[in-house]
Amino acid sequence: MESRVEIGERIRKLPAAAAAAVRLNPREYADDYFAVLNATLKESSADEGAHTIYVSVTNPAALVWSIAQALDVPPERLSFVDAISHTMMNFRDPLPNAVYIESPRMLETIMLRVEYLLRLHKATRTTLVVDSVNSLAIHNPKELLNEFFHILVNNLKSRQVLTLLLIVSEDPTSDLDQMLGLIVDETVDVVRAHG
């Protein structure tokens, strides 16, 4: 059985160009989510020259940013592609370290904004977090999503970017899990922490 500390350790040990699915337990979502944010945001932004690009589709960037601030993540080491605030009609004060997309259906725009942030920050080590696969699946057909992840992950691998795809699931045989199984190198399974 893995503890949440070990999950953080596993994420930290992933090689630079890896792609991993990070599977959260829906029944323990709040605890798992914080543990994963702690591991991805804090640890991946700890080093000089490191940068995290956080694609927020589940929660607005402002919410994730408030958690990141509580974790003392330096603002220059974290930027957001927010694809949900506009759709939620919850777009008030834009964050200076975020770019906003009108709709989570504009998958190519997500790719292009990620590309923009990669070029802008020119970090020596970049981590991309997509939060989450489930939220993107609400707005996009499976075939389109499959193509999106396939292109995104392969492009980022060639750029030595670590990609973490958050998925909320307790059934490894679900459609989304199976789709990710063909794309990622490994699964960091938070579900197993609860036995």
Partner: peptide, 22 residues
């Protein structure tokens, strides 16, 4: 290709077809 005008210049990505599911 889908393109985006950014302050760094024009960026492009493949236009996703999703087997024309969209």
């Amino acid at each position: 290709y889908v393109m985006e005008l950014t302050p760094l210049g024009l960026l492009m990505a493949p236009h996703l077809k999703g087997n024309r599911a969209q």
